[in-house]
Write a protein that binds this DNA or RNA. Sequence first.
DNA 1: GAAGAGAGAACGAACATTCCTTTTTTTAGA
DNA 2: TCTAAAAAAAGGAATGTTCGTTCTCTCTTC
Lengths: 202, 202
Amino acid sequence: MARMPKEHLEARRRQILDAARHCFIRNGFHATSMQDVLTEAELSAGAVYRYFKSKDDIIAATAAEALAEVASAFEADDGARPPDLDNIVDLVLGVERPPLSGSQESAQLLVQVWSEALRSSSLSTKLKEVMAEARGVVGSLVARHQQRGLLPADVPAEQVADVLMALVDGFLVRRAVYGHADSAAFRNGMRALMSAPAQVTR
Amino acid sequence: MARMPKEHLEARRRQILDAARHCFIRNGFHATSMQDVLTEAELSAGAVYRYFKSKDDIIAATAAEALAEVASAFEADDGARPPDLDNIVDLVLGVERPPLSGSQESAQLLVQVWSEALRSSSLSTKLKEVMAEARGVVGSLVARHQQRGLLPADVPAEQVADVLMALVDGFLVRRAVYGHADSAAFRNGMRALMSAPAQVTR
DNA sequence: GAAGAGAGAACGAACATTCCTTTTTTTAGA
DNA sequence: TCTAAAAAAAGGAATGTTCGTTCTCTCTTC
């Protein structure tokens, strides 16, 4: 037998997924051709089809990684943290941490994942799972604030969590469309809305 | 000469755009084939290509109408209105008014428009224009609240407007992915966050 | 030397678009 | 008012391209 070391197999797979990710971010899942991916990966068709059985397979793997990135960004906030709720955007989008701080590219890919989820029921299922899990994490964060009297307790924590998560999604849309999306200004706006003492940005 | 009444020409154009809209919502811009559109519109290729010079032309027209829908939803809130800020989602998404209340379909199409804007610079430009205009409208709404002391005045109104608009976008994502997205529960969550008197949903 | 890994030509299907034909409609002349 | 010519509108087969995928052959690695 002449099986190559599996580290090399995994490296090849990664090489393909990275190339595909670039192409998909640049042109979307369906406007990207296999030839585009092959060229970007500097590999032949025969090579790529040894690691993925179809283009849809590559799309699914790319989308799954994007969702995993989101999930881990939320999971990292699970512990009993230093939570100012108006910091949640920074917390989740990771000003210092790696996860979603890949900035514009991750946001752009996530928008594409949303739109692909509208036509792929399996992707839609995964997306809903991630959202449900995140709602739980953020919901318990909200509940702790309610117990401490920092938030009105007469509203279900999950409803507040939905609003906070919608804020994150809306922020990601802005980050995807414009390149920057100033999280400090965003946090400022949140503070004002929450009637908390605000610090002026400029 | 034998030119048909222009009302019929416009009806044909509408028929094509409606069919294309359905297809695009169902399958996305680039996974929808011309044949799909022709079948849905119950027209031949020759007929459709008399009204649109290319598929990209149909995509552009569909996206432009979606953005116009968003723009008009925000413009309708321009007057000195009955504005509770936490009602903005209902206001903009139109619980009673027509604009974006087309519910899931409009939200799904808008997500596709976002993702298409990532690869079409002309669409990206139009999207930014609509966002900028909406920011102005919502910003002046915020400014009025600040003048009345309902919001901290030491934060630029536009920063608060950005947060509110991000909320709307996030809500639309939920409405696109799930079908429903309960706006009453969402408003409830906003009230809690804003420390305003909350009404319990259940 | 055996077999996995990769290259790249080849394939059929599907694609957007065009082109020619047929049908339908409007208008002008009688 | 009816008819005929003309032109527009629609149909649908045809076209050339591009797509995703496969197949065969060569090279590389254990």
